[in-house]
Structures are given as C-alpha cells and as structure tokens.
Design a protein around this nucleic acid. Sequence first.
DNA 1: GCATTAGTGAACGGCACCGTTTAATTGAAC
DNA 2: GTTCAATTAAACGGTGCCGTTCACTAATGC
Lengths: 204, 204
Amino acid sequence: MKKKPGRPSDQAKRLAILDAASRAFFEDGFAATSIEQVAAEAGVSKVTIYNQFGDKRALFTAAVERECEKMRGYFCIDETREGTIRERLQEIGKGMIAFLSRPEMIQFERRIAAETEVEPAIGHAFLDAGPWRMKKGFAAFLSHANSQGDLKVKDTILAAEQFAALCKGMGDLDQRFGRDVSDADRAKRINGAVDVFLAAYAAP
Amino acid sequence: MKKKPGRPSDQAKRLAILDAASRAFFEDGFAATSIEQVAAEAGVSKVTIYNQFGDKRALFTAAVERECEKMRGYFCIDETREGTIRERLQEIGKGMIAFLSRPEMIQFERRIAAETEVEPAIGHAFLDAGPWRMKKGFAAFLSHANSQGDLKVKDTILAAEQFAALCKGMGDLDQRFGRDVSDADRAKRINGAVDVFLAAYAAP
DNA sequence: GCATTAGTGAACGGCACCGTTTAATTGAAC
DNA sequence: GTTCAATTAAACGGTGCCGTTCACTAATGC
C-alpha cells in the first residue's frame, strides 16, 4: 500500500549527503558552503540533492535536525548516584561544561544563532533539543535532591538555570568570541558555582 | 610637516560610510551586504570606499571598532550611590540586562561571533570593549562594597562573573536562538540572582 | 598658473554558485 | 520485458558582487 512504483530512493545516499552537509555547513558556514561541494563530498550528483531536499536552506534545516537528534541522547542525569550533594554537583557541572565547551559545539552554536535570524524555527529546534532538555533534566535532579533532604530549592527550573549559568560564567562568552579558556579557569568556575549554589540552596 | 599635498580626504564622507556600513552589516549581515549597497546608502562612490578602507573585510572591521568605541561609555557603575546593597544589586542587574537584551545588541553579538571565526581580533576587540570592561567595573563595585562591610567577597572577578551570569540565566540563550523573553521573566531572573548572590556573599 | 590628491560615474573582467534542463543510465517491482 | 522513478554528468541561464580601470571633475598647496 505504501510502496511507490519505480526505483526507490537510495537512503544510504541520503545519509551520505546529510553527513557531508553537516560537516560543510558547521565547519565552513552556510554561505561558504556550495551544493556542488556537498555533492562531491557525498559522492553524489547535485541533482540528487535537489531531488531529495529541494533547496539549500532545506538541506541546512535537515542537517540541523539530524544534529539535534544526536544531541538528545546526551542529557540524562542519573538521579540515584551516590556521593555527597557537593560531589554530585561538581560532577554534573564538569560534565556539562566539558560537553558545551567542545570547539565543535561552539561553532555549531554560532551557526545556529546566525541562521536563527532568517529561520527562527531552527533556533527553536536547537533550544528544544539542547538547553531546555538539559534544564529540565537538571531540574528533575534538584527535585530529587529536595526530596532526599539534601537541598531546599523552591523553584527548581530557576535554580537549574542558575547552576548552569554559574558554571559557564563568562567562559562561554570568551570562547564564543575567540579567547581560549584553560581547564584551570573552567575548574575554578565550577568550584565557585558549587560554592555559591550550595550557599543559597543547601538544606540547613 | 604632517600635511599631505593635494585634496584632503573628506572625513564627513568617511563617517557616512561607516554609519551606512554599520547599519548594513549589523542588520543584514556581512555576506548579505554589498559594497555597492553601502556606497549608495552613504551617498558616495564605490571607489571612495575602496580608497579609504581598501577592502570589504577592512570596512567591516572599522565598523566594529567604531561600534565598540560607542559601547565603551556604557559601563560606569557609580560606586557611591545610596540604598541597601540589595537595592543596588537589583538596580545594577536591571540596567545590565536592559542593555544586553536589546535586539540590536543580540544581533550585533551574533554577527561578531560569526566573524570571530575568520578574524579572531574582531572577537577580542568586542570582549575588551564590552564584557570585560563591565566585569572589571562590577568587580570594582564589589570591592567597594567589601570595604563598606556590605559584602564579603574573596574573588571579586569571579563573583562579578557569577552575578552577571545569574542575571542572564538562560534568557540569553533564549534570545540568541529566537525566543522572546518577557519582562516578567527577566525580573524573575534578576530577583533570583540577587537572592542567590546575597546568600553566598552577604556580610554576616 | 600647476601639481597633487580625492572623489565620481560607468563600465568591465571575472568568479562563484544556485537552480534547472537534457539525455542517458540504473534499479526495483509487476 | 516492461514500466516507472531515481540517478548521473554536463551544460546552461542567470544573478550578484568584488575589485579594478578609465576618463573626468573638484579641492587644496605652491
């Protein structure tokens, strides 16, 4: 019933195109990437790309969606691990910052931000797949810590934001605008974040 | 001694070019802006632009420097105003967020971030003129509040970062990726920031 | 006057790339 | 084997824009 007559479209080629497109778009930029380039890299004819995706912009969107899909797996915080609350926070902060400060991620965010302006849906897709997902996951952790008596947090969503923001500090900005950030700087920010967070939210 | 022979270059035209370039670059983007467009808007011949700036990229850099120059004035925190420390923090947070969440500023940051990749000096110029300047200004305020006995902050630079980060929360991200942020949200984040900051740093 | 430099308008060469078309080939299903 | 659609290579039309050149005019110093 669902089968179309004729030669089926080659899914392997579709994936190859998406891979090549992701690499090119997120490494070189949207404007700096030509369809011909992507086609060559994917070992595919240009027309195939137009047949499957229709448009340069649509190809970009598809690449973003694929990348967001990959991202969805990363934000699972295990609420039931052992250790003091301080240790747990430290660990979570470290993991988060390690994930976010990868150069590819910095680059990826820059691209998405630039294209959000002409296609807001792209920005929203990213927010859904990344930051918001992480925020909710961490809020759930806080909620659990609340019920364990480790913390006393009223607004878990707000507190989740605050912890993430504290860990980033301005290292975020520095990286986005081309300054290297050392591991020592990162560690210092994370330690400071945990201190401040616990000063505000530790159970008495 | 310093005078060159011949007709002097028209500074008024130079400024007109920079104005037009700023508007075009930061509103439409670098790639989407053509020199011809800028020339027309500035009421100037294209050749004049090439004579004075040499290059499209150089024109962009000049526009960024000019914009950063404008920015330098904005970060002066009056350390000696009256009011409780809580009120002062609230006020500073509000001012900062109001300045940073203007749509033009969001856009400007997106452009700079995108071009930082190909010209790191641009990102550094921005960091110097904006975020770092603000950080130092606020750290000085914290230092003053320390000596007044209002706060007990060990690392004023780290604490300055933390306060700024707390105020932004994820509103920053939301805006960069195209989500509207309400004034209520902003107020909530600022209040939360002050609460957490004071919990960690208020003098006993 | 004259030399020198700045600015103008128009045109040009050149390049890169999008998106389409054409004609031919390949692969699956019936 | 026939039919239908996917795929391909090549070429094309079109666009947009950079950076340059040229001939000409305008302002300044001597």
